Amino acid sequence: MPAVTSAATPLRAARAAVFAVVAFTLGGLAHVFAGGVVPFESAVTAIAVCFVPAFLLAGRERSLPVIVVTLAATQAALHLLFSATDVIAEAAGHAEHPHIGLVPSLGMLIMHGWAIALTALWMSHGETLLWSLLRRLAVRLRIVQVLSADPIAHEPARAPFREPAVLRSALLAHELCRRGPPHATRAHAV
């Protein structure tokens, strides 16, 4: 199971907007292809109906079953909204829809089911890809943050440097070392 990660509000809004546009487009186009009409007022309401639950659920990564249930609920709400719009338009004499009424036919239920299943699979893969990229980006940003931090603050404390003791044997204490430049004290004495 993937790790639970919370999303900031801009990311939540962007994800909810994508969900709302996909769900509205799916429901609206299917409704128009079936002979219905989607007026501007209904479109704005439909996008809000899709956006609100998506925004509430967009705080972390969602599984396929949650996406399916959310899509099914929004599609049912959109169907009721568009059917009510068609009933009002029919009463006013503006439009004719072959499936007038709030109860969908068997064919319409099958089409809604296929649309929900395919869109949910597509959105689930997108959800997995998005969160995978965000986790990788977080790891890389953390590495950059650690590397760019003050290097002195992260170095272990060092022991103070001491000159190593010069070891002389008692047997060779009388010997003069004539190798190298003369020492300053001996140079004046010679």
Rank of each mutant, 00 (worst) to 15 (best):
G35V: 10
F33I: 06
L78M: 14
P65N: 02
E155N: 07
A14W: 00
D150I: 05
G36P: 07
A46L: 07
A30T: 11
F40G: 07
T119D: 01
I152A: 15
A48M: 09
S6P: 05
F82W: 11
R12Y: 00
A95K: 05
V18P: 00
H31S: 10
S63V: 02
R62L: 09
E175L: 15
G113N: 05
V68D: 04
A7E: 13
A138G: 13
L56K: 01
V68Q: 01
P156N: 12
R136K: 06
V87F: 10
A23K: 01
A157E: 13
V18Q: 02
P98L: 09
A34Q: 01
P39G: 09
G113E: 08
F161P: 03
S42R: 05
T25H: 01
V44Y: 04
G101I: 09
P2G: 03
M108S: 11
P65Y: 01
H183P: 09
G59D: 08
T74I: 09
L102I: 11
L121H: 02
S169R: 08
R140L: 15
S63F: 07
T45M: 14
P98G: 14
F24W: 15
I88Y: 10
S63K: 08
S169F: 01
A58M: 01
A48V: 15
R136A: 12
I152K: 13
A91N: 13
A120Q: 00
V166K: 07
H31E: 06
H94T: 12
A76Y: 05
L134T: 07
G101W: 13
L106M: 11
T128G: 02
L171R: 14
A43E: 02
P65L: 00
P160A: 13
H99P: 03
F24K: 01
T5S: 13
P65T: 02
R168T: 12
A115V: 02
V69M: 10
R178S: 06
H154L: 07
L171V: 11
S105E: 05
R62S: 04
P164M: 06
A16F: 01
L71G: 06
V52M: 11
F33S: 05
D86R: 13
A184N: 00
F19H: 12
G180W: 06
V52K: 03
P10C: 05
I100S: 15
A189F: 04
L167Q: 03
T185E: 09
H183E: 14
L56I: 00
R162P: 00
A92V: 02
G113A: 15
S169A: 08
I67S: 02
V18K: 03
H154W: 08
A173Q: 14
R186F: 08
A30L: 13
V49D: 08
A77D: 02
R178W: 08
M108E: 15
S105Y: 04
D86G: 11
A184I: 00
L176K: 15
L56R: 07
R186M: 04
V22R: 00
V37D: 12
G180F: 07
A13Y: 05
I100L: 15
P182Y: 05
R162V: 06
M123P: 00
P156T: 10
V4Q: 11
W131D: 06
R142K: 11
V21M: 05
P151M: 10
E127Q: 04
A115K: 12
P65S: 02
L141Y: 09
A84E: 13
R168M: 06
E96F: 09
L133S: 03
V38P: 10
V44E: 07
A173W: 06
F19P: 00
I143K: 01
A14H: 00
V68N: 04
H188T: 10
P182H: 07
